[in-house]
Protein backbone atom coordinates (compact mmCIF):
# COMPACT_ATOMS: atom_id res chain seq x y z
CA UNK A 1 0.00 0.00 0.00
CA UNK A 2 1.16 3.51 -0.77
CA UNK A 3 2.12 5.70 2.14
CA UNK A 4 -0.42 8.31 1.10
CA UNK A 5 -3.31 8.05 -1.31
CA UNK A 6 -4.82 11.42 -1.96
CA UNK A 7 -8.46 11.56 -2.90
CA UNK A 8 -11.35 13.96 -3.09
CA UNK A 9 -15.03 13.91 -2.27
CA UNK A 10 -17.70 16.24 -3.61
CA UNK A 11 -20.94 16.40 -1.66
CA UNK A 12 -23.68 16.38 -4.30
CA UNK A 13 -26.26 17.38 -1.64
CA UNK A 14 -24.57 20.68 -0.94
CA UNK A 15 -22.81 21.56 -4.23
CA UNK A 16 -24.78 24.39 -5.83
CA UNK A 17 -22.72 24.58 -9.03
CA UNK A 18 -21.51 28.12 -8.39
CA UNK A 19 -18.25 27.35 -10.28
CA UNK A 20 -16.08 29.09 -7.70
CA UNK A 21 -13.90 25.96 -7.79
CA UNK A 22 -13.50 26.35 -11.54
CA UNK A 23 -12.43 29.99 -11.25
CA UNK A 24 -10.12 29.26 -8.31
CA UNK A 25 -8.38 26.52 -10.30
CA UNK A 26 -8.02 28.71 -13.37
CA UNK A 27 -6.56 31.53 -11.28
CA UNK A 28 -4.29 29.35 -9.15
CA UNK A 29 -2.85 27.50 -12.14
CA UNK A 30 -2.93 30.44 -14.60
CA UNK A 31 -4.82 28.44 -17.22
CA UNK A 32 -5.16 29.78 -20.75
CA UNK A 33 -8.43 31.37 -21.75
CA UNK A 34 -11.04 28.82 -22.78
CA UNK A 35 -9.51 25.91 -20.84
CA UNK A 36 -10.53 24.39 -17.52
CA UNK A 37 -9.15 21.63 -15.34
CA UNK A 38 -12.42 21.22 -13.42
CA UNK A 39 -16.01 21.83 -14.38
CA UNK A 40 -19.62 21.61 -13.21
CA UNK A 41 -21.90 18.85 -14.45
CA UNK A 42 -25.62 19.09 -13.87
CA UNK A 43 -27.82 16.02 -14.32
CA UNK A 44 -31.59 16.11 -14.26
CA UNK A 45 -33.50 12.86 -14.14
CA UNK A 46 -37.05 11.73 -13.58
CA UNK A 47 -40.31 12.72 -15.22
CA UNK A 48 -41.87 16.18 -14.82
CA UNK A 49 -42.90 17.32 -12.25
CA UNK A 50 -40.95 14.76 -10.20
CA UNK A 51 -37.48 15.79 -11.25
CA UNK A 52 -34.25 15.31 -9.36
CA UNK A 53 -31.18 17.40 -10.07
CA UNK A 54 -27.62 16.42 -9.20
CA UNK A 55 -24.79 18.95 -9.39
CA UNK A 56 -21.19 17.84 -9.34
CA UNK A 57 -17.84 19.58 -9.43
CA UNK A 58 -15.74 17.23 -11.60
CA UNK A 59 -12.05 16.93 -12.53
CA UNK A 60 -9.40 14.30 -13.24
CA UNK A 61 -10.23 11.25 -11.13
CA UNK A 62 -6.58 10.43 -10.34
CA UNK A 63 -7.34 6.79 -11.01
CA UNK A 64 -5.39 4.10 -9.24
CA UNK A 65 -5.51 2.00 -12.42
CA UNK A 66 -5.13 4.89 -14.83
CA UNK A 67 -5.67 4.17 -18.53
CA UNK A 68 -3.78 7.36 -19.40
CA UNK A 69 -0.62 6.20 -17.62
CA UNK A 70 -0.72 2.88 -19.47
CA UNK A 71 -1.28 4.58 -22.84
CA UNK A 72 1.52 7.15 -22.51
CA UNK A 73 4.49 6.11 -24.68
CA UNK A 74 7.10 8.31 -23.02
CA UNK A 75 6.31 8.07 -19.32
CA UNK A 76 5.14 11.70 -19.22
CA UNK A 77 1.90 10.56 -17.57
CA UNK A 78 2.84 8.84 -14.34
CA UNK A 79 1.86 8.09 -10.77
CA UNK A 80 3.37 10.56 -8.34
CA UNK A 81 3.69 10.89 -4.59
CA UNK A 82 0.33 10.55 -2.87
CA UNK A 83 -0.87 8.17 -5.61
CA UNK A 84 -1.91 11.05 -7.84
CA UNK A 85 -1.59 11.03 -11.63
CA UNK A 86 0.66 13.77 -13.00
CA UNK A 87 2.01 14.86 -16.39
CA UNK A 88 5.65 15.83 -16.85
CA UNK A 89 5.47 18.45 -19.58
CA UNK A 90 9.11 18.07 -20.59
CA UNK A 91 8.47 14.43 -21.54
CA UNK A 92 5.13 14.97 -23.29
CA UNK A 93 5.10 14.76 -27.11
CA UNK A 94 1.45 15.78 -27.39
CA UNK A 95 0.57 12.48 -29.08
CA UNK A 96 -2.78 12.58 -27.23
CA UNK A 97 -2.88 8.82 -26.59
CA UNK A 98 -3.64 9.60 -22.93
CA UNK A 99 -6.57 11.78 -23.98
CA UNK A 100 -7.98 8.98 -26.12
CA UNK A 101 -7.48 6.55 -23.24
CA UNK A 102 -9.15 8.68 -20.53
CA UNK A 103 -12.81 7.64 -20.14
CA UNK A 104 -13.59 10.94 -18.40
CA UNK A 105 -12.16 13.28 -21.08
CA UNK A 106 -10.46 15.08 -18.20
CA UNK A 107 -7.36 16.07 -20.19
CA UNK A 108 -6.71 18.75 -22.77
CA UNK A 109 -3.81 20.08 -24.82
CA UNK A 110 -2.42 23.31 -23.44
CA UNK A 111 -2.13 25.52 -26.51
CA UNK A 112 0.82 27.45 -25.07
CA UNK A 113 3.11 24.51 -24.31
CA UNK A 114 1.65 21.92 -26.70
CA UNK A 115 1.65 19.43 -23.83
CA UNK A 116 -1.25 17.65 -22.20
CA UNK A 117 -2.59 19.20 -19.02
CA UNK A 118 -5.15 18.32 -16.37
CA UNK A 119 -5.98 18.63 -12.66
CA UNK A 120 -2.95 17.90 -10.48
CA UNK A 121 -4.83 17.76 -7.15
CA UNK A 122 -2.78 20.95 -6.53
CA UNK A 123 0.47 19.01 -6.51
CA UNK A 124 2.37 22.28 -6.09
CA UNK A 125 0.60 22.78 -2.76
CA UNK A 126 0.63 19.25 -1.37
CA UNK A 127 4.32 18.79 -2.18
CA UNK A 128 4.98 21.71 0.15
CA UNK A 129 2.90 20.23 2.92
CA UNK A 130 -0.30 22.20 2.34
CA UNK A 131 -3.40 20.17 3.07
CA UNK A 132 -5.92 21.88 0.79
CA UNK A 133 -6.47 22.36 -2.92
CA UNK A 134 -7.46 25.68 -4.48
CA UNK A 135 -10.93 24.40 -5.35
CA UNK A 136 -11.54 23.10 -1.84
CA UNK A 137 -10.37 26.33 -0.28
CA UNK A 138 -12.87 28.54 -2.10
CA UNK A 139 -15.92 26.27 -2.03
CA UNK A 140 -18.58 28.35 -0.25
CA UNK A 141 -20.67 25.32 0.76
CA UNK A 142 -17.68 23.23 1.83
CA UNK A 143 -18.75 20.52 -0.61
CA UNK A 144 -15.21 19.63 -1.63
CA UNK A 145 -12.99 17.67 0.74
CA UNK A 146 -9.45 16.66 -0.15
CA UNK A 147 -7.28 14.34 1.92
CA UNK A 148 -5.44 11.09 2.45
CA UNK A 149 -7.63 8.05 1.83
CA UNK A 150 -5.13 5.84 3.64
CA UNK A 151 -5.38 7.85 6.84
CA UNK A 152 -8.34 6.43 8.81
CA UNK A 153 -8.58 9.65 10.84
CA UNK A 154 -8.78 12.01 7.87
CA UNK A 155 -12.02 13.86 7.16
CA UNK A 156 -12.31 12.22 3.74
CA UNK A 157 -12.02 8.74 5.28
CA UNK A 158 -14.75 9.57 7.79
CA UNK A 159 -17.03 10.90 5.06
CA UNK A 160 -16.56 7.80 2.92
CA UNK A 161 -17.22 5.58 5.93
CA UNK A 162 -20.39 7.44 6.94
CA UNK A 163 -22.02 8.44 3.68
CA UNK A 164 -23.18 6.64 0.55
CA UNK A 165 -20.99 7.49 -2.39
CA UNK A 166 -20.29 6.63 -6.01
CA UNK A 167 -17.49 7.09 -8.53
CA UNK A 168 -17.89 7.99 -12.19
CA UNK A 169 -17.90 5.22 -14.78
CA UNK A 170 -16.83 2.43 -12.41
CA UNK A 171 -17.31 -0.06 -15.28
CA UNK A 172 -14.27 1.48 -16.97
CA UNK A 173 -12.19 -0.27 -14.30
CA UNK A 174 -9.96 2.69 -13.57
CA UNK A 175 -10.49 2.81 -9.75
CA UNK A 176 -10.93 6.58 -9.35
CA UNK A 177 -9.75 8.43 -6.23
CA UNK A 178 -12.52 10.97 -6.73
CA UNK A 179 -15.81 10.22 -4.94
CA UNK A 180 -19.24 11.80 -5.04
CA UNK A 181 -21.30 11.73 -1.85
CA UNK A 182 -24.99 10.94 -2.35
Amino acid sequence: MLEQQFGMTVDTRTCVGCAACVIACKTENRLAEGYVRNWITTQTRGRFPELVMTIRSERCNHCRSAACVRACPTGASHYAAGGTVQVTGSKCTGCKACMAACPYDARYVDEQSGTVDKCTFCNHRTSRGMATTACQEVCPTRSIVFGDLNDPDSEISHLLAQRDWYTLKPDAGTRPSHYFLK
Binding site: A19, I40, T41, Q43, T44, R107
Partner: peptide, 12 residues
Protein backbone atom coordinates in the same frame (compact mmCIF):
# COMPACT_ATOMS: atom_id res chain seq x y z
CA UNK B 1 -31.84 11.99 -18.03
CA UNK B 2 -30.34 15.23 -19.22
CA UNK B 3 -26.78 16.27 -18.48
CA UNK B 4 -25.06 19.57 -19.06
CA UNK B 5 -21.46 20.53 -18.41
CA UNK B 6 -19.67 23.84 -18.14
CA UNK B 7 -16.56 22.27 -19.67
CA UNK B 8 -15.73 23.46 -23.19
CA UNK B 9 -12.08 22.54 -23.68
CA UNK B 10 -10.97 22.72 -27.34
CA UNK B 11 -10.52 19.27 -29.01
CA UNK B 12 -12.43 17.68 -26.12
Amino acid sequence: MEATSTRANPLV
